[in-house]
Design a protein around this nucleic acid. Structure first.
Lengths: 163, 163
DNA sequence: AGGCATTCGTTTCATTGGAAATGACATCCT
DNA sequence: AGGATGTCATTTCCAATGAAACGAATGCCT
C-alpha cells in the first residue's frame, strides 16, 4: 500500500504541516513553545485558573504545565501562587504583559491560519470542520467507553505500576 | 476566545489523539518509532529505495532517515548499502523479517484505525477525507505556489547558505 | 587535471520531552 | 488524633530531537 493513501498518515502529516505554519509565528517569531502558547491562550481567556481546572481543560499533562508555567513566569507573562484552600494546588493568572503579548501574537497566528483556511473552498472548509468534530467524538467514545461502565479507562499520565 | 473553539487547536489535538492510538500499537507493542514505522512502510511498498527517492516521498528529513534506518538495520528489518552509481547515497531494502513484521503490525494498526473511523457516520468520514485533502492542497499551494499538487510539502530544512 | 563549491549521510552537541522519583500536602480510616 | 494512603506540583534521569558541524564523494569550471 502506498503510504500517501493511508489515511492516518495523511492526517498526521497534514496536521503537522498546518501546525508548523503556526509554530513559525508564535515559536520562531515570539519564542513561545507550544505548551507556553496554549497555557497563555487558556489564561488570557480565563484571566485566572487554578491547576485543577487547568488540567481539565487542556491536553497538557502536569509536567508540561509545570514547565511551561515556570518559563512564562520567568518571562513575566503569568504569575503563579500557591492556592490557599489547597496548598498542593497552584493558581495561575495572566499579567498585563502577558495579555499584551498574547493579543499581538494571536492576531498574527489567526491571520496565518486564516490565510490558509480561506484558501480552501468553503465547502471543503465546512467538511473539514465537520470531519474533525466527528473524529473527535469517535476517539472520545472509543477511549472512554460511553456510560463509564468500564471501571478502568486510561487517564493521561497514569501508569499502573505497583510499587 | 475559548481555546476549544479555535480550529487550529482542535485539529492538532484530534490528530494527536488519533496518532496516539496508532503509536500504542506499532510503538508500545512492537517497539517501532514513528520514523521507523514510516520507513518500513515505504520499503515494504517499494521493496527497495535509494535515499534520493526516499527523501522525495517522505516527510522525514535526512537525520531522521539516517537514524531510523540505522536502528532498523540493527534489528534486521532492512539492509543498507552504499549505492554504486553515487557513493554518497544509500540503497535501502526490506528484509524478509522486516516484511513479516510490517505485515503483522500493519494489520493491527489498520484494525485499530478502522475501529475508530468506522465508528464515525459515513458522511462524517467522507467529510473528513475531503477536508483533509483540501487542507493539504491549501498548504501546498501556500508554501510552494503553483507546484505539483498532491501530498508534497515543505521539509523543515532551512539551509540558509551564506554567500 | 585540479581546485572550489555543492550535495550527501552521519555524528556531535545542546536542548527537549516523557516517565518515574520526590517531597509537600491533604484525606481517609480506625 | 495520627499513621497510612492518595494527590498534587516539581525535580531528576535518560532517551529522543533538531540544528549545526563534519567527512566523504561528486559536479562544476577554467
Amino acid at each position: 500500500m502506498r503510504i500517501e493513501t493511508f489515511f492516518p498518515y495523511r492526517l498526521a502529516v497534514v496536521a503537522e504541516a498546518f501546525s508548523r505554519q503556526l509554530v513559525a509565528v508564535y515559536g520562531r517569531e515570539h519564542g513561545l513553545s507550544r505548551e507556553e502558547w496554549r497555557l497563555l491562550f487558556l489564561l488570557e481567556d480565563a484571566g485566572t485558573l487554578d491547576s485543577l481546572r487547568l488540567s481539565q481543560r487542556t491536553s497538557l499533562d502536569k509536567v508540561q504545565v509545570s514547565r511551561a508555567a515556570s518559563r512564562l513566569e520567568d518571562k513575566g507573562f503569568i504569575t503563579r501562587e500557591v492556592l490557599g484552600s489547597d496548598r498542593r494546588l497552584r493558581n495561575y493568572a495572566i499579567t498585563a504583559a502577558g495579555r499584551d503579548l498574547f493579543r499581538r501574537v494571536f492576531g498574527e497566528v489567526e491571520a496565518r491560519a486564516n490565510e490558509i483556511l480561506q484558501a480552501m473552498p468553503a465547502g471543503d472548509r465546512a467538511a473539514l470542520d465537520q470531519g474533525i468534530a466527528a473524529l473527535d467524538r469517535a476517539i472520545a467514545d472509543m477511549t472512554q467507553p460511553e456510560k463509564g461502565h468500564g471501571t478502568a479507562f486510561p487517564r493521561p499520565g497514569r501508569s499502573q505500576t505497583e510499587t
